[in-house]
Computed example of a mutant assay.
Amino acid sequence: MTSDISYTTEEIAKLLKISKLTVYDLIKKGDLPAYRVGKQMRVDASDLEAYKTRAKSGHPAVQKTEVTEQPPRMESPLLSSSNRSLVITGQDFSLDILAGHIEKRVPGYRPLRSYVGSLDSLISMYKGESDIVSTHLLDGDTGEYNLPYIRKLLVGSSYIVVNLISRTAGLYVQRGNPKQLSGWSDFKQPGLRIANREKGSGARVLLDEQLRLHGIAPQGIGGYEDEETNHMSVAGKVASGEADVGVGIEKAANLVGGIDFIPLIQERYDLVMLRKPENREWIDQVKHILQSEAFQGELRFIQGYDLSKTGRVLFET
């Protein structure tokens, strides 16, 4: 029966042929009722059909006068329909830990995770589709992380930038480093095969900026056009011998095994939040979480994380 069927946000995105961020935006605005099962958000088939019916009639928003005969869902207070969703973008594990603390310590809000890259995260914030975005984008001309991109993409907006972590980025190479790679200039080496990241990810921007600064044409690198969506996949391609090198963070190299890691740069992984009057309360609470011993204690023993700036406000308009 339809009443027994529910969908994940990924399944909803495929069914409606929209992005997952748009699905989160519909949930955030209350147009698409959702609830949490474990760490997943789910939408009942009946609610999806009701939304599609409203959309076809030209009124996709939930009408306040709408009456339903369905019994109310039994949800925890944290998941009640009166709570506002906070969409958190990014792929690092530290964001999942942060979401857990927000769920416990920020009443009236429920965190939703969206696993997209740094550039797409900032674009989603500009479009009003996300609330807390993570970014680690290197500007090769200045050597500065994040702020040059934030200033350009969020022009006209008031925002605050807070450090989440710093972490080491570099090269994944096959065990024993048979190609004898040691730095960015080695991408000139003929016949080199790379496992690359998707456009807009911090690792892809890091690679492209370094290739530009070193005068290396990316089209001459085997596998450059083939894209993976996370650090683990890149490391796995190198470990399996399908690629000679990949760009990523140290933590993934330790988890995958069978490869060596060459550290090249310490990247700053920051959070961006828009300074709107309605956001002021939860922004202050998120800052307190980032600076708390409870949160930092969970991160402290994860190899590859530097917490020396965690919770520090780096910039605010």
Rank of each mutant, 00 (worst) to 15 (best):
S6N: 11
S6K: 03
Y7G: 08
E10H: 04
A13K: 00
K14W: 00
K14D: 14
L16G: 07
L21I: 02
K28L: 01
K29T: 01
G30H: 03
D31W: 13
P33I: 03
A34M: 07
G38K: 09
G38S: 12
Q40A: 11
Q40I: 11
M41E: 06
V43Q: 08
D44H: 02
D47P: 10
A50R: 15
Y51D: 04
R54I: 05
K56G: 12
G58S: 08
H59M: 06
A61N: 11
A61H: 11
A61K: 08
V62Q: 08
V62L: 15
Q63L: 15
K64C: 12
T65Q: 05
V67W: 00
E69D: 06
R73K: 07
R73H: 07
M74A: 12
S76C: 05
S76H: 06
L78R: 02
L78C: 03
S80Q: 14
S81F: 02
S82G: 08
Q91V: 08
F93P: 14
L95M: 01
L98T: 02
A99N: 07
H101D: 05
I102V: 15
G108P: 13
S114Q: 06
S114M: 01
Y115H: 07
V116R: 10
S124L: 00
M125Q: 04
Y126K: 14
E129L: 14
E129V: 11
I132S: 03
L138C: 04
D139C: 14
G140M: 06
G140H: 05
D141T: 14
P148I: 02
I150Y: 12
L153D: 00
L154Y: 04
S158D: 15
Y159W: 08
Y159P: 10
I160V: 15
I160K: 04
I160F: 01
L164F: 04
R167M: 14
A169T: 09
A169G: 10
A169W: 09
L171S: 07
V173I: 02
R175D: 03
K179Q: 10
S185H: 06
D186E: 01
K188P: 13
L192S: 08
K199Y: 01
G200R: 03
S201D: 03
S201G: 00
A203I: 08
L206A: 12
L207Y: 06
E209F: 05
G215H: 08
I216T: 10
Y224V: 00
E225K: 07
D226M: 09
E227A: 11
E228Y: 09
M232S: 08
M232F: 04
G236W: 03
S240N: 00
G241R: 10
G241D: 01
G241Y: 00
E242N: 09
A243T: 05
V247P: 13
G248F: 01
A252W: 02
N254M: 14
F261D: 03
I262L: 15
L264G: 00
L264M: 14
E267W: 03
R268L: 06
Y269I: 09
Y269V: 11
D270K: 03
L271I: 06
V272M: 11
E278R: 08
E278Q: 06
R280A: 11
R280I: 01
I283V: 14
V286I: 11
K287T: 00
L290Y: 04
S292Q: 10
E293C: 10
F295C: 03
E298L: 10
R300I: 09
D306A: 01
T310Q: 05
T310K: 12
G311D: 09
G311R: 13
G311A: 01
R312I: 14
L314Q: 05
F315Y: 15
